[in-house]
Amino acid sequence: MDNLVEIENVSFSYGDRPVLKGINLTARRGQVIAIMGNSGCGKTTLLRLIGGQIKPDQGTVKVAGQVVNELKPLDLYSLRRKMGMLFQFGALFTDMNVFENVAFQMREHTKLPEDVIRDLVLMKLHAVGLRGAADLMPSELSGGMARRVALARAIALEPMLVMYDEPFAGLDPISLGVTGNLIRRLTDTLGLTSLVVTHDVQESLKIVDYVYFVSEGIIEAEGTPAEISASNLPFVHQFVHGEADGPVPFHYPAKPYESDLRLGA
């Protein structure tokens, strides 16, 4: 029984708009898990539930045996010290330079001497190929660079669980491959567990241990990369091959097109 994350029958709605309708998901220690699904299906929402930023309407979210949605604020904070999160839009602190962004948690949570912090930060930045950018401000970074800094920041304290919200978006093929390998390597060498939300099917199938497909608020399909590649479920097939037609609707729910354009009688 070595599950780090266990999500059981979780439902969540923003106001009266249901987003998740009974999700089940488990992540074993040391695994890299990919969460895929069409845009707006609730992947970011799922990560926020695991981080305890929002509470499910129903079901339980367990991390390291603790029920996140029932933790008191202080316990939640101490659990979060062991989690890292790469936000979808980076969420770098705009009033600090790259170095300080990565050093942030070390300064907040540890009493490490300055030269140790310096070395650690430069190591993390080196891992994402941005050691030379340590003195830049976030506003001076490109989108892909900002995301890599955010990645370095997420793994700064080498947490037991790292959640990556679309780590590959906006990366060129080279950084994409490097980042994918980095996630895999970090997971293996540090023994952490990684949850990767991504749209990049090909890249993620190379590095992950298990894949969950979210659709319409439930887990539509799951399996190892080999099972997914070989799958002939129409849903998975459409997703892996990027086809416009299939069970996954490209459109957000709406009235019939004709009536919206007032072409009807």
């Binding site: 930023q53 904070y77 936000f87 969420a91 602190f93 705009t94 948690q105």
Partner: peptide
């Protein structure tokens, strides 16, 4: 403006996720 923008760009949420109030 600064705090509003920090919120809009999820900097405050990121801080919370790093267990910093």
């Amino acid at each position: 403006a600064e705090i509003g923008l920090m919120k809009a760009t999820e900097q405050l949420a990121a801080m919370e996720m790093m267990a910093v109030d």
